[in-house]
Design a protein around this nucleic acid. Structure first.
Lengths: 148, 148
DNA sequence: TTTAAATAGTTAGAATTCAGACAGTTTGAG
DNA sequence: CTCAAACTGTCTGAATTCTAACTATTTAAA
């Protein structure tokens, strides 16, 4: 009934997540020269809205692992700061589509420039072969998560 | 100056995290037959304390991506419920070591039984080969995160 | 030895996120 | 068509987390 390989995957995720938080999450905390003083979850939201333009609030909540009620105020603040805009969905009047404004896209670019620097610095500790393995490993994991 | 492979890794992590939250994080929200009504972060803390017995508050905060100030009250609640205990570090009087009590270990086992079920169900959608690739992929990613 | 810097944990008040209820809209079965 | 179920976003008061300051302890350099 139990697939031992899946059990191993489960264990690896349990090991992976704390490591991710320790090594990579702090990147979103950095607040130097952040004129808008966005906090961690606002930055994560901006990342996702950039990638999936026109996303609705509920789906954004699933990607962030946050409740939609929390996102109303989070997005309100980003709209007030002029980084995000809401548009009505013509085909489904329940929905509100989220987009980055031009200022939001500019903020995204600056944020990415900083995170890229940190990634480069961190992963340069690995050999070229280890980088390769991590890269292909991630590709397989992402492919798996997309299917389940 | 920039390693393009590392840039790809960065992109994959940006793609990976939302997927993880959407597909796997909800497991920690399930609160059926949870006599202690632990919320998501309390469960995550219990997972980590089980794996790294004797961990200190600050390190736990790094693994959870939470501030130590938040953890004081989070752990207080778990101690009051009899799931966690604090012990003094004999060699460093600043430190407090965290352990699961016997009740905490039992709670951990019950929680794991439920999460395992969900993992089995989700990943059974994949072929045996895809499971294998995800497993080895994760191993490489974890190895990389440990080194950086 | 002395002292400055780093680290551990707590606290208080502010900010964020939560749960649960609500109204409006869409979907789909009968 | 009709109506129940599902889904979207908002609201409110409660709970959780955060920021920043503080004390105590350890480390390491002078």
């Amino acid at each position: 009934m139990q697939n031992p390989k899946i059990k191993e995957i489960e264990h690896l995720f349990m090991e992976f997540m704390p490591l991710y938080h320790k090594k990579l999450s702090p990147i979103f905390r950095e607040n130097d020269d952040d004129e808008f003083r966005c906090h961690k979850n606002q930055k994560r939201a901006i990342m996702i809205i950039h990638r999936t333009k026109g996303i609705i609030l509920s789906e954004l909540g699933r990607y962030l692992d946050m409740r939609k009620g929390s996102l109303t105020s989070l997005i309100d603040a980003l709209v007030e700061n002029g980084l995000v805009e809401r548009r009505e969905d013509v085909h489904d009047r329940r929905k509100t589509l989220l987009y980055l404004t031009e200022a939001g896209e500019e903020y995204y670019r600056q944020m990415m420039a900083r995170t890229s620097k940190t990634y480069q610095k961190l992963f340069s500790k690995l050999s070229e072969e280890e980088i390769e393995e991590c890269l292909h490993g991630l590709q397989h994991v992402v492919a798996a998560l997309k299917k389940i």
